[in-house]
C-alpha cells in the first residue's frame, strides 16, 4: 500500500506538486494521468525516494519513506520513463547488480532471470551490453531487473513507451498478477485507453494539484476517460485564464 499525505514539492520558487493526497491500496492498479509537466514524474520520484520529501509524507505499507527509506524501498520497484541504465554493463550484470542490492539468493535470481527474460523474449540478449539495446529492449531490461526481487509495490513512469505489443501485453498481465497476489501498482500514462482498461482507480493531476481521483467507474461515469480528462483539464485551465 502506498499513501501520499499532503505532499508538496518546490523547484526553487515553482510549486511542482501542491498538497497531494492519494491512497493506493493493496490490489489496486492505480493510473496517474495529467498533462506534460503536471507533476506526475515528480510525485513518482518522491514515492521512490529519488526526491527528498520536504512537505508532507509518503507511506509505504504504513512506513514513512522519509524516516525509513531503505525498508520502504525493499518492498518496492521503480520502472523509469527513460531507462537510463548502465550502458557499459550487460543486462545480466545489471540485473545481478540489482539482485545483489536486494540480497536475492543465487538460485532465486537465476530462476527469476530465466523466467522473466523468457517472458520478454530477452534470453538471447541478456549477455549483450545495454548500450547496444533499442529503447524497448532497455525498457524490458529495466522491467526484468525491477521484477527480479519480487516487489510488492510497483511504481512505473510511462511503462509502455517503446514496448512492442507482446511485451506491453505481458507487462499488463504481470501487473494484474501482482495485484491479485496483494501487491499494488501505481503508474503514470498518457495512453488513456490503457488506463481505462487496466486500472481500477485513477487520479488526474493538473499543475501539481489533484483534480479528480477514485474508482475509474466513478470518475468517468457514463463518459469515456478521454472526455472526462479533457473536460476536467480544460475546465481548470479555462477557469484560471478567466
Amino acid at each position: 500500500m502506498i499513501e501520499i499525505v499532503d505532499f508538496s514539492k518546490f523547484y526553487g520558487e515553482k510549486k511542482a506538486v501542491d498538497g497531494l493526497d492519494l491512497k493506493i491500496e493493496n490490489g489496486d492498479i492505480y493510473g496517474f494521468i495529467g498533462h506534460n509537466g503536471a507533476g506526475k514524474t515528480t510525485t513518482i520520484k518522491a514515492i521512490t525516494g529519488i526526491h527528498k520529501i520536504e512537505h508532507g509524507d509518503i507511506l509505504i505499507d504504513g512506513v514513512s519513506i522519509k524516516t525509513h527509506p531503505t525498508e520502504c524501498k525493499r518492498t518496492m520497484a521503480y520502472i523509469p520513463d527513460s531507462p537510463d541504465l548502465y550502458e557499459y554493463l550487460t543486462a545480466r550484470r545489471f540485473i545481478n547488480f540489482i539482485c545483489d542490492v536486494y540480497g536475492i539468493g543465487a538460485n532465486e535470481r537465476k530462476e527469476r532471470i530465466e523466467k522473466y527474460s523468457a517472458l520478454f523474449g530477452m534470453t538471447a540478449n541478456l549477455d549483450d551490453k545495454i548500450g547496444t539495446y533499442s529503447h524497448g529492449m532497455k525498457q524490458k531490461a529495466a522491467i526484468i531487473a525491477a521484477l527480479c526481487h519480487d516487489p510488492k509495490n510497483i511504481v512505473m513512469d510511462e511503462p509502455f513507451v517503446g514496448l512492442d505489443p507482446k511485451a506491453a501485453h505481458t507487462v499488463k498481465e504481470l501487473m494484474r498478477e501482482i495485484c491479485a497476489q496483494g501487491g499494488c501498482i501505481f503508474f503514470s500514462t498518457h495512453v488513456l485507453e490503457v488506463a481505462e482498461k487496466l486500472c481500477n482507480k485513477i487520479a488526474i493531476i493538473k499543475e501539481g494539484k489533484l483534480i479528480e481521483s477514485g474508482p475509474i467507474d466513478e470518475v468517468r461515469g457514463n463518459s469515456s476517460l478521454e472526455d472526462i480528462f479533457l473536460e476536467l483539464t480544460d475546465d481548470a485551465s479555462n477557469g484560471e485564464s478567466l
Binding site: 537510463d84 542490492v101 536486494y102
Partner: peptide
C-alpha cells in the same frame, strides 16, 4: 551523476 535515479530508488541508504 547520471545514475542518481537508479541508485536512489534502490533499497540502499544514501
Amino acid at each position: 551523476i547520471r545514475d542518481g535515479d537508479i541508485l536512489f530508488s534502490l533499497p540502499i541508504s544514501h
